[in-house]
Write a protein that binds this DNA or RNA. Structure first.
Lengths: 136, 136, 136, 136
DNA sequence: GTGGTCTAGACCACA
DNA sequence: GTGGTCTAGACCACA
């Protein structure tokens, strides 16, 4: 009754407007493309991943299923879920994602009225303020 | 009755996984921030915009209402919808959007394992392949 | 371009969520019931009232028509619009309005969990803070 | 085909001239401020409330969304809608509503030509005729 | 013509 | 089951 009351509903860290299962898919793809999970390596179980992300297991399952149907991961009965060993596949995923990101940036910035030079400058500036990243 | 009938359903050009009304909001913001719609200027009517985008009027209205609640546009009963005349507001929207775009790019690329130098190179390359844009 | 820009869209003083023509009706009723416009007296023309209220003449006309259909005012071709001379009519309007106001207050306050004593206190307090009103 | 057919369309109990979603908002606020729904408690689901009120679910959703944007309630994906746990928020809502009600009464009655003493008398009289309300 | 509200009904993501 | 988005279409208030 006395003192400040704060609403604590600590949940996952996903952006509100994109389906969570899609965001999980992107995360997993990043883990694979960056090598954080090796080719042929084992993914966390649906259960564990759900706990890690504070999300319902169904949501993780949905993401894994989509990734499987895209051929990026595969499931082995009773063993778990694994990254494909097709390096071409992984490369193409990586390229697609990178393409999409760059296109989004430039389409968006152009729509806002920024010129090429200004876009490059802003990106450079933002990168300069990043911590770490020794080997630039 | 005779011969094949082909149903061509030309529809809007929206990305699949983000609510349409949010994409409309971003488009309108871009129109405003780039000056394509002047400060204080009149937006297309809900109905017209809906036709232009091949979308239900309710969806456009949803977008306009959100924009109004963000203070970027305002409505005059029976007269239409207009861009705010508060230039500070517009500037801050522009900055927010630019920030978001750059952050998305860099977070995503970093997650994929790209280094700063590579990111800048890719952006530069993409920009070089753009048509027009004389005054870079 | 420099200095603060303020959005001036000075318009009528009506509450947003109730049709303007209804609010005009209530205002006219108050003018009549309080005697500010005498029984049999002449109302401002639609045109003048519209200007006074910064409203479209159609809206005032709508209000006047409704009032006429309620028998509170009547129109004389070429002469203008006049208050009824039926004092019973006016009394009953006054009672209806007063009833409605008191009921709204008490239903609302009760819904909020206020007790009778608290309601009276709040009303009294509010009245005490009113300016003027010598002859209480 | 034989005999008279009578269509009885039992509908909600809303006043005609105020948008239904606003009336729902007020009702919910009253439920919260009076403690009929506890702080942090769960609101009826959109669907249930719609059935209870004989109203389209979209209308209830509209009301809930506005209440959420006012910070009085919040939504948890797939779980439901809940009352804020910020007691200050609730207090301020309660005060605002009470203020509005009292102001409406007094402005209206004054406009009708009632004096302070008369207003208090009428309110008192109305309260005396209420059933129940032991603990006045 | 212009925005605002409402209904009916479908489909989706999440728990 | 729960909220969110979207379509199709009707009717209203206001200018």
């Amino acid at each position: 009754m006395t003192g400040a009351v704060i609403n604590i509903v600590l949940k996952h860290m996903f952006s509100e407007n994109i389906p969570i299962y899609l965001q999980i898919m992107d995360h997993v793809k990043q883990d694979i493309c960056s090598g954080r999970i090796a080719m042929g390596g084992k993914l966390p179980s649906v259960r564990d991943k759900a706990i890690e992300l504070s999300v319902n297991p169904n949501t993780v399952r949905h993401a894994y299923q989509e990734l499987e149907s895209e051929g990026i991961i595969f499931t082995q009965r009773g063993m778990g879920t694994f990254v494909t060993e097709d390096s071409n596949k992984i490369d193409s995923v990586r390229n697609e994602l990178a393409q999409r990101l760059v296109r989004q940036l430039i389409d968006g910035m152009t729509g806002l009225g920024f010129k090429s030079r200004q876009i490059l400058l802003l990106v450079d500036e933002y990168l300069s303020n990043l911590p770490g990243d020794e080997e630039r």
